[in-house]
Design a protein around this nucleic acid. Structure first.
Length: 969
RNA sequence: GGGCGGGUGGUGGAAUGGUAUACACGGCGGACUUAAAAUCCGCUGCCCUAACCGGCUUGCGGGUUCGAAUCCCGCCCCGCCUACCA
């Protein structure tokens, strides 16, 4: 027995990494017309001092597997890498350690490169881009100038989010729960002149074009929610000689608007406030402004507000509408003012109740399921509460007949409805001493009365009574009601669960839970619009307002323009010069890039200006327009700028004439698959789509969308199930795993952990499984390779032909699954298919037969296919085995094995025999057996026959190649 | 409150209308070893059983179907995103 070569990843991994690098094995070839291109993109990392973490490994490995798989199939694959280098953590590190951010970044990047290479990721390193490289950010600045030229970049004095700790302005997106997402400091408001990008100009297209790309559903829906498009109307009201314009999505409820509310920051507040209310209003506004964002964003806080003394007129009803100021109206959305419709908006309802303002319903509720040709009936629902116990009177019809209801009934003739309600309560329950507390509006309820076999539309009015005393008389039931129900007192909580009927539930929620109706229905109390369906009334009322010059249709978005200024050193300088005469003048293109000067201190200044403001010989410049003295813009771009176009630069990374040559963009874009974290769905992904669309409009890129497909990897949590963080001490460093087990093992393990897109916990225990698998593949392969040149003396057993067919079938089955699973990004099941395959190959009997002298061809083709299938997953081991096999070239450019369905055709299939859906036997049959043959075979089974004897076979279901099911009665 | 996921053995998970629990971890037993590790072999959802046979089981309740983890209705629970957005 000769000693096989040992598996030693510490030797073979660095060896092959060096060979791959030296031979530029993974180079993407520009403009190769002979091959189809494929562009894989993984979000480039921010090079933090901590290095790569295991979450990076997951995404980069997954795309690496796909890239290798495609390359082996002959595609011209672009799988590039770069570094998103600007950002606050590096600046903070620089401040703390008195080290230039350029130096810290270079060091971190070197470490990332080393880690990527140690994992065997097949990047084309010749295309590396770095966002803080002036050769790169020259073009970031250039794109900004194009935006400026098209008026999509503008300056505005805005109340911006201000972090008092980091002394910087923040984008809305960086504020989480009123706190700065990075440092947790409560955010304040500060007025500053800011550069802003008009992303809202692209809002509709950013929604529309999602239809043309293949994004995960949750990614697309999150983007749509974030953009938050809503259609409605702007309506102008006159109050105290001022015009107040409100925005509403419910112009149909205009007649129900009983007051107006302005945000405390609304510009008209001071003008409309009457002298007598001035002190109160000033105090309220001051208090509201002093409150932190945190407090204002707390949910369930009571409504507060104050009357301005001014009133407006409702254009439909002519009624007076008091104008209030309240902080539940946000200055930043719509027009910062609303018309309040307390009958049909929960927030307005709470406010009206708190301040005793009038509530006027203008839409009649509709419940139930619409029926065709219904019979109309006038009826009531009575809800009776006993104030002593808090319980509610209910009648229980039994689970089969609709369960619990309150008291319902029809009016007789022209009977007064309240009288009907009292009569029905008495007849059905015997209770008669009731005090009326509230009455509902009329409710249209559609249902099908099964007892009478009739479709009905009832016009029901709800009555809410309290019991004044327990006296009651005997029930007076009709013959068909007797014994059908029981009368029960139930708690409100029980009622909420037990009463399922739409109409009864609606009235219960209205009277007991103080809920209001926000659904659809016909208009009432709306003058000329009465009776109109509210969906139609939306348009009718908007048009009516517009005809009179009182309003107009309007579309609003939650998405705000992108605040593009940061008061920091470590970012791209905004290429603008401020001239006292000519204003903000763009830096001429031939003067780009505007590079960052060396500075001594990186701290932002107390005035909120960036540290660049202190470098006078950098700041002082001349105006490109008039040549007079002028000052450079000292703000820099946000960290999202460099990542908003980097996938374009990968196509032509060394071009110093343009950001990328047109023909290279034509060839490589769009990105075929873009993978990244869910956390970038609403920020980076929207920003980059916006920039891309803008460049498309300038005819600078060939496609309207940057990424054809977007996927997301799940987060890897620490072993404790909590997000990895330094402070928690649960961070796993991939370096240690690579050192201990090898890169191939960590790669395979991360693929095997679970579904790619789901969140999962790191667990060292489960590493053993893949580690053993790799060891078994290695050992088995070495045995086969050794056998290749040896004559073994094992006795050939059985029929070699059948054995060959079996092995080939297993190989093809595995190949089919691995191929499909890689394409569907189901790496965990691809790995388990390979595990099943190696389990078959290493079975003692199988292995012995493979080592027979006559099986030379079989074992060689089996081993070759195994190595090729594994190559994308475990590139180093596969390369080593490939060469051990005597191959000269790299396994990674060898052809992906061809799947041949012919191999799967023969062979017997297992047929399941069921009796009444329960498995009673397994049969082995030829795949082309007829239904009749299968049935006969199934009946012949002893155990099946036993169950068939229990009754008569009513029906036989046969699914060819799968099962036979007998239905026996 | 709204939106989107999800709930399967001791654990990670597989199966998208056709043998539920593949694959792996862990556990138990055995082989090898002076011993341990590593490796190899066997068993491993629950109940009944000496074993076979059988019964039960995919969060809970109902429905559709010859057949449901999978489809439909109702409920419970968990996660993520979002939130006075008028």
């Amino acid at each position: 027995m000769n000693e096989n070569k040992k598996y030693n990843p510490r030797d073979i991994e660095p060896k092959w990494q060096q060979v791959w690098e030296d031979t530029k094995l993974y180079r993407a070839i520009d403009d190769d017309k002979t091959r189809e291109k494929y562009y894989y993109l993984m979000e480039f990392p921010y090079p933090s001092g901590d290095g790569l973490h295991v979450g990076h490994v997951l995404g980069f490995t997954a795309l690496d597997i796909m890239a290798r798989h495609k390359r082996m199939q002959g595609f011209n694959v672009l799988y590039p890498i770069g570094f998103d280098e600007f950002g606050l953590p590096t600046e903070n590190y620089a401040i703390k350690n008195k080290i230039a951010p350029q130096v810290a970044t270079a060091r971190n990047v070197a470490n990332f490169r080393r880690q990527f290479k140690s994992l065997g990721i097949s990047f084309d390193w010749d295309r590396e881009v770095r966002t803080s490289d002036p050769g790169y950010y020259k073009w970031t600045q250039w794109i900004f100038l194009q935006l400026l030229q098209k008026n999509l970049a503008y300056q505005a004095e805005l109340p911006i989010n201000w972090c008092p700790f980091e002394k910087t302005g923040l984008a809305n997106e960086e504020v989480v729960d009123g706190k700065h997402e990075r440092c947790g400091t409560p955010v304040e408001k500060k007025l500053l002149k800011q550069w802003v990008l008009k992303i809202t100009a692209y809002a509709d297209r950013l929604i529309q074009d999602l239809k043309s790309v293949d994004y995960l559903d949750r990614v697309a829906s999150q983007q749509i929610n974030w953009i938050g498009r809503s259609e409605g109307a702007e309506i102008d009201f006159k109050a105290n000689n001022q015009t107040i314009t409100v925005y509403t999505t419910r112009p149909d409820t205009l007649a129900g608007a009983t007051f107006l509310v302005l945000a405390p920051e609304h510009a008209a507040v001071t003008q409309i406030t009457t002298p007598s209310q001035k002190a109160k209003v000033d105090a309220y506004v001051k208090q509201a402004q002093g409150e932190s964002e945190v407090a204002r964003q707390e949910t369930d806080r009571p409504k507060t507000g104050v009357f301005t003394g001014a009133t407006a007129k409702n254009p439909v009803t002519g009624d007076d509408m008091p104008v209030w100021v309240a902080d539940y109206v946000l200055a930043g959305y719509g027009t910062g003012a609303i018309m309040a419709v307390p009958a049909h908006d929960q927030r307005d309802h709470e406010f009206a109740q708190a301040f005793g303002l009038s509530i006027k319903p203008v839409i009649e509720p509709v419940t139930g399921t619409p029926q065709t040709d219904p019979e109309h009936r006038r009826s009531i629902v009575a809800i009776v509460r006993d104030p002593k116990t808090g319980q509610i009177l209910s009648i229980n019809w039994g689970a089969a007949n609709g369960g619990n209801l309150f008291i319902g009934g029809g009016a007789e003739g022209h009977e007064d409805l309240e009288a009907t309600a009292r009569r029905e309560v008495e007849e059905e329950t015997g209770y008669r001493n009731l005090k009326l507390i509230a009455t509902s509006e009329r409710v249209h309820h559609h249902y099908f009365a099964h007892s009478k076999n009739k479709a009905r539309l009832i016009e029901a009015t709800g009555f809410y009574f309290e019991l004044t005393n327990d006296d009651h008389v005997a029930q007076k039931l009709e013959a068909n009601e007797q014994g059908k129900f029981t009368v029960e007192w139930i708690t409100p909580a029980q009622a909420g669960r037990a009463v399922a009927d739409d109409l009864h539930k609606y009235l219960f929620n209205k009277f007991i839970n103080n809920q209001i109706y926000t659904g659809a229905g016909p208009l009432i109390n709306s003058g000329q619009f009465d009776g109109l369906a509210n969906t139609k009334a939306k348009h009718a009322i908007t048009k009516w307002l517009s005809d009179q010059g009182l309003g107009r249709a309007a579309t609003k978005y939650k998405l705000r323009d992108w605040i593009f200024s940061r008061q920091h050193y470590w970012g791209e300088p905004i290429p603008v010069i401020h001239c006292p005469k000519d204003g903000a003048v763009p830096v001429p293109e031939d003067q780009l890039p505007v590079t960052l000067p060396d500075v001594e201190y990186y701290e932002p200044t107390d005035t909120g200006e960036s540290p660049l403001a202190a470098i006078t010989d950098w700041v002082n410049s001349t105006c490109p327009e008039c040549g007079g003295p002028a000052k450079r813009e000292t703000d820099t771009m946000p960290n999202w700028a460099g990542s908003s176009w980097y996938w374009l630069r990968y196509t032509d990374p060394h071009n110093d004439q343009e950001f990328a040559a047109k023909d290279k963009l034509e060839y490589w874009t769009p990105v075929d698959l873009y993978n990244g974290g869910m956390e970038h769905t609403t920020l980076h992904l929207l920003y980059s789509r916006f920039w891309h669309k803008f460049l498309y409009d300038q005819n600078l890129v060939p496609t309207p969308e940057p990424y054809a497909k977007r996927t997301s990897h799940g987060m890897i949590l620490g072993p404790d199930g909590v997000k990895m963080s330094k402070s928690r001490g649960n961070v796993i460093n991939p370096d240690h795993v690579v050192e201990q087990y090898g890169a191939d093992t960590i790669r395979l393990y991360e693929m095997f952990m679970g579904p790619f897109d789901e969140q999962k916990n790191w667990s060292e225990k489960h590493l053993n499984g893949v580690s053993r698998f790799i060891y078994r593949v290695w050992t088995w392969s070495q045995d086969i390779i050794t056998a290749g040149s040896q004559v073994t003396i094992t006795e050939p057993g059985g029929d070699l032909g059948i054995f060959e067919a079996e092995i080939d079938r297993a190989t093809q089955k595995t190949l089919k699954k691995v191929h499909r699973d890689i394409e569907k990004m189901q790496f965990n099941t691809a790995v388990s298919a390979l595990m099943e395959y190696i389990n078959i190959l290493t079975k003692a009997e199988t292995k012995a037969r493979l080592l027979q002298p006559g099986a030379t061809n079989l074992r060689n083709r089996t081993l070759r296919t195994l190595i090729l299938m594994l190559a994308p997953f475990t590139p180093h081991m596969s390369e080593e085995l490939w060469h051990d096999l005597g191959e000269e070239g790299s396994v990674h450019i060898a052809g992906w094995p061809k799947y041949d369905p012919e191999f799967l055709k023969d062979g017997l299939v297992t047929i399941v025999v069921q009796v009444n859906g329960k498995v009673r036997a397994n049969l082995v049959a030829a795949p082309d057996a007829t239904d009749a043959e299968l049935t006969t075979l199934a009946r012949a089974d002893e155990n099946v026959a036993k169950y068939l004897a229990e009754g008569k076979v009513m029906k036989t279901v046969v699914v060819s190649r799968k099962l036979v099911n007998f239905v026996v009665k």
